[in-house]
Computed example of a mutant assay.
Amino acid sequence: MTLTLDNAAPVTTAAPSAQRRAPRWRGPALGLLLPLTVAVGWEAAVYLGWSNGRLVPPPSRVFSTITELARTGELTRHVAATLGRVAAGFGLGVLSGTLLGAVAGYWSLARRLLDSTVQALRAIPSIAWVPLFILWLGIFETSKVALIAVGVFFPVYLGVMGAIRSVDRKIVEVGRAFRLSGPAMIRRILLPAVLPAYVLALRVGLGLGWMFVVAAEFMGASEGLGFLLIDGQQLGKPAQIVAAIVIFAVLGKTTDWLIEIATLPLLRWQDAFGRHDGET
């Protein structure tokens, strides 16, 4: 685009879309820099004899443990069990949190009735739910999924309710001036305004779901990554414990990335700072 002023040379400005962007691989590469540096440093420390690596095994030993678990088929079985529990709990938590959060955010009477109780329940530690869920639902899958759903519910509820309440009143007044119906107001005004905060709430809820699945799999599970942690502790296998932690980290980051990628088309309208600093 060219701007011309009186008695001045033309001034050329580049549109934001034409600005040079960083390569797409740059962000993930920089994100891997820190963990790879720490891993190489610890491997070198054990190799040079600065540590015996007994309690904190080097990455090579952890990698060999993961390889052995994959070879025997145990890794696939444990990962599938944990992923299934997280998926089921995440789905239930998102559904209930979205519905109640939307009702509490849109309807002030419902908020006054619900919010105090929800906030009180949110302060209860996750481990406190374990004996109650075992008593109510038994020690099998239902209680584990319910515990994960509890962890996912609260951030989604708070994110949806807070996002609806923080919608600019002037935007709502514009919708009323155009005589939009209730469903049209939600679809054309509230939903786009709420989406950025909702996506963030989903990501926070997913992170808590991965945390709660560990507590859930402590409840008498015979398979899952939480079971690998307990088994490694009882048998004195620190490499297996660290391997399970690494797998948790990889799965958590991968699922978070999938949510980010899946919701990216819904947020392309944003002219936010983070979209012009080289991130993708």
Rank of each mutant, 00 (worst) to 15 (best):
F248L: 07
A197H: 14
R203F: 04
A272Y: 06
E43G: 10
W25N: 05
G138N: 08
L32Q: 11
W25C: 01
S60Q: 13
W257V: 04
F154L: 04
V150H: 12
D6C: 00
V174P: 15
L208K: 11
P196C: 03
K253Y: 00
T76Y: 01
A9L: 06
G73K: 04
L200D: 15
V94Y: 01
V40Y: 02
A15E: 10
T65N: 05
T4W: 01
L137P: 06
Q270C: 03
F133I: 07
V250A: 02
V46W: 08
T82N: 02
R176Y: 13
A70F: 09
W107E: 11
G162S: 12
V130Q: 08
L33M: 05
P57R: 10
V199M: 07
M1V: 11
Q19K: 06
A201K: 06
R77F: 06
I164C: 08
I189A: 09
W210C: 11
P57S: 09
F248A: 04
V38I: 14
Q233P: 06
V62E: 03
A239P: 04
A120V: 13
G101Y: 01
L158S: 11
L92I: 07
T263H: 06
D231V: 00
R187V: 09
S116W: 14
A146K: 09
S222E: 03
V86F: 02
G97Q: 02
V194Q: 07
R26E: 08
L113T: 15
V150C: 08
I241C: 00
L195N: 11
R165P: 06
W136F: 13
G91Q: 02
E43I: 03
Y157S: 07
Y47R: 15
Q19A: 02
G27N: 05
D256P: 04
R179H: 13
T254R: 00
G27E: 08
R21F: 04
P125V: 02
K237Q: 07
R179D: 13
A193T: 07
W42Y: 06
I241Y: 06
G220D: 05
S166Y: 12
V130H: 03
L180Y: 14
P58N: 14
A149V: 12
T263F: 09
Q234D: 02
F63L: 15
F154Y: 12
L55W: 15
T98S: 04
F248E: 12
T2N: 04
A146C: 07
T117Y: 01
L137M: 03
Y106V: 14
T37K: 01
W129Y: 13
A39H: 00
S143Y: 10
A18C: 01
R122S: 06
W50F: 15
D277W: 13
V118P: 09
A201S: 12
E68A: 11
L208H: 14
G31A: 10
I134Q: 08
V86H: 05
G236A: 10
S126Q: 08
V103M: 07
G274Y: 11
S166D: 15
W269K: 09
R122I: 02
V194E: 09
L114S: 15
V150Y: 08
A184C: 05
T82Q: 01
S108N: 14
